[in-house]
Amino acid sequence: MPLKLKPPRKGKTPNYSIRGTYLGVHVDRTAGTADKAVAERLRKAIQKSIERGEYQKPATVEPPREPTFADAALAYLKAGGAPNYIERIIKDQSAHSLRDKKLAEIDQIAIDNAARAVYPDAPSTTLNRQFYTPVSAILKHAGIERKIKRPKGWRGSKATSWLDPEPAFAVIREAFAIEPEFGLLCLTLLYTGMRLSDPLRARVRDLRLGMALLYVPDTKNGDPRPVHLPPILVEAFKAQPPRQARPRKANGIRLIDGQAGRSRTSAGVPWLDRPADEKLFRFCKGGRLYDLLDQAMTRAGVSFPKRQGAFHLFCHTYGTWMTHYGELDTYGLTRTGRWKDPDSADRYRHTIASPEARRADLLPVPMSKQERKAANAD
């Protein structure tokens, strides 16, 4: 059966098609033209090439596969994206899993359902940090700039606790009394606002007292931060005494629990003369360190609810003092480098009354007895 020409189909294709089976070879292809004479010449040429055994079907091009969320996540990680929390999102096998969804199908409803499938009982703050934030980063890296609505309450409470100067100074005094190096750590947190992990990861080489600077190469925000050291801190670092070695047990001597143990690194060496690669502070983030802070706060007579009374209290105090005494607004706080997001720094705006609220000082008030007498006399 010879090959036949099929005319153009309105709304389908403007070109002729060549279809049929000739000498056992099936042909179904476009002629690529709306000119019947040209299409006919191509039909005859195809028949002759089949007779010679030379005809080859046009190569079919597979349509590109639409990328999935898993593809986008892999590309994001290969580009150096933060891996935090992504594994749990990818391993989700629920009906709402994002893993195999095409990127074009991922909308707000899909994200919300997947978030609750991965973290069914998590509070909004956890959902935002461990699901919405990494998902948003992956989609943005894939070129999808869709604005993602975060779960209600994702910012947490804006209520902020801080220390007034006298209680803060009392806590610092007690911290130095417990141990000089612990006191210096607390003083550093109070006057820089750093997260606890930042000074604990710092090395001696990162301290540049001549520049009044502590360079933090890797912060939680992912950006390096040059931390300014006020004069009180510079002097405290210079005055820091060497670490004391732990006492050793001897015959007939009973040591207090906790006194003995492994000798402290660089004990007896001037504090600023230690090796450059050594940790700036010897502490590790853990229960023992938090116990020291509880002890200092108890001795100072300072008490806060457990969630508000940890080391982050120093950060809130720094932000509040920079607002009260440093007279910084939200933009100014962000420019210190401590906060990357203005929304995070904005909480300290709520620790002072706004200029508009202070206009209440101008409202009329009742006259005192003396004022009334003076008015009546006039």
Rank of each mutant, 00 (worst) to 15 (best):
K57D: 13
A236D: 02
I90M: 14
L255K: 14
S136N: 14
A168F: 04
G20H: 12
I109K: 10
R116F: 06
T160P: 13
T60Y: 14
A159K: 14
P67K: 02
L98Y: 03
N128L: 01
G53V: 08
D294M: 07
Y215P: 04
T126V: 12
G326M: 12
K238M: 04
L209M: 09
S266Q: 11
A202D: 00
R254M: 11
P123I: 05
E51I: 12
L77K: 10
K10Q: 12
E371D: 05
D206R: 01
R335W: 05
G193C: 13
A114W: 00
A34T: 13
V38F: 09
E371A: 13
R52Y: 07
K10E: 10
I148C: 04
W162A: 09
E54L: 14
P167G: 11
A79M: 01
M297W: 01
L184P: 07
G24D: 15
K369C: 04
I86Q: 04
P224D: 11
A104T: 10
A360G: 11
D277M: 09
R225N: 02
T336P: 03
F281D: 09
R208M: 15
T30S: 15
L293V: 04
Q308I: 07
G143D: 09
C186W: 04
L163G: 09
K78Q: 14
